[in-house]
Amino acid sequence: MSRVYFRRNNQVLPYLFLTPALVFLALFMAYPLTETVVKSFYAYDLTSRVLNLVGISNYIELVHDPMFQTAAKNAILFVIFSVLVQIPLGTVLAAVLDRGVTSNASLTFRTIIFSPLVLSIVAVGLLWQLILDPLVGLASAVVKAVGLHPPPLGWLGDPKIAIYVIMAIAFWQYIGFVTLLMFAGLQRIPEELYQAATLDGAGPITSFWYVSLPMVQNALIVTSLLTMIGALRVFDFVYILTGGGPANATQVPATMIYKEAFFLGRMGYANAVSVLLLLATVGLGFVQIRFSRHS
């Protein structure tokens, strides 16, 4: 009896279970997503809401816009340095935590290394802003104490170095994320493989190179993609530390979208930036999802 009851309702029940999720996704994701693409071909103001169809001229303007060039360049720099710095350092940390120290020590160090991950970027940004204060900040005091000169335009005031300072702070907070993911991957490697390598006379570095790395290849790719996607989405660090300045030198795509839409009021133009950001992140995201499912 109950089976019949179940089967009859089976046609309705799954859709009933799915409806709330699909309604949410439709209203607050699918619809805005479509709007982003469609309205990137319009010019409209934050307030006036009068839509003017302008075709691809938002995109043409973007190509010539120095702010976009800076934002795109900074995004690419962020992606490149994230991979070059965070991935190797995070992976080596994970490997040392995995096999280099006793398990008690590993747990203590992991607690320390992962702890910045639970802090808000805003809190971390505000903290570093005080540390980097050009007049009375700790960083300048340290640099002076060892007999060097802090940058005369200030850590975050010099357009040539500000973006790298922001990166360093972002890495300070998020290298632990790479370590976390890689550590999880390394822990899955069977102990026998390492024993076999040791019998063959491999030292810790050799084992890392020939046993650990090949075994976590997939995790490495997924982590790299996640790091790249994260770097493309950076907003909070820049907003808090420099607001995109000095003179737009530290703009990234997300801060540019915010500035164009909510400060300059050019919503259509902001949508065009969004579409390009979406293409980049969604592209990387799909690759990441593919790799994740294989692993």
């Binding site: 005369p152 335009l153 850590w155 975050l156 005031g157 010099d158 357009p159 000095p246």
Partner: peptide, 15 residues
């Protein structure tokens, strides 16, 4: 002062 664009308006006021 040096570091004009690194200094906040409020810090200059405090100075």
């Amino acid at each position: 002062n040096d570091g004009i664009t690194a200094l906040t308006p409020e810090a200059a006021r405090s100075m």
